[in-house]
Amino acid sequence: MKPSGVLMITGGIVLVMILAVSMFSPGGGAETADRAAVAERDSTACIASKEYMRSHHMKLLDQWRHDAVREGDRIHETPDGRTFEKSLNTCLSCHSQNRFFCVMCHQYANVEPTCWNCHLLPTETKE
């Protein structure tokens, strides 16, 4: 075994360990919930069908808002068992790839949701 190979392997293992430790150790001597698996957020499929989301996204978001803000219930489970955080950011993690995703339809339908008074649109930037 060449010395460079040994170096690479041990270096890799050490890095993995450092990263693993830094990721899973709770910082600052505080008590936070145990963290095991990290769920997939960047799912390839939306939480519901395109048709359903088109007609019902406002109702779903309203429900999410109520659950997350007021009940502290932040997990949305789809019928096929996938889980998502109830957050507008969950939607934006995929849909902000098209910066005009929300705006396009709302403009066409001439609706002005108040979401963006506080939540940041992907198009909202600071110079």
Binding site: M8, I9, G11, G12, I13, L15, V16, L19, A20, M23, T32, A33, D34, R35, A36, A37, V38, A39, R41, D42, R74, I75, T83, E85, S87, N89, T90, L92, S93, S96, Q97
Partner: peptide
């Protein structure tokens, strides 16, 4: 070794496509 590094990197949110932090569902 490289694969593991890449995997950890992705898990740690280094994926440039998603600027938003990953959610730890178990904490919720």
């Amino acid at each position: 070794g490289i694969g593991a590094l890449a995997g950890i990197g992705a898990l740690a949110g280094l994926n440039p496509l998603s600027a938003l932090e990953k959610t730890d569902m178990s904490a919720l």
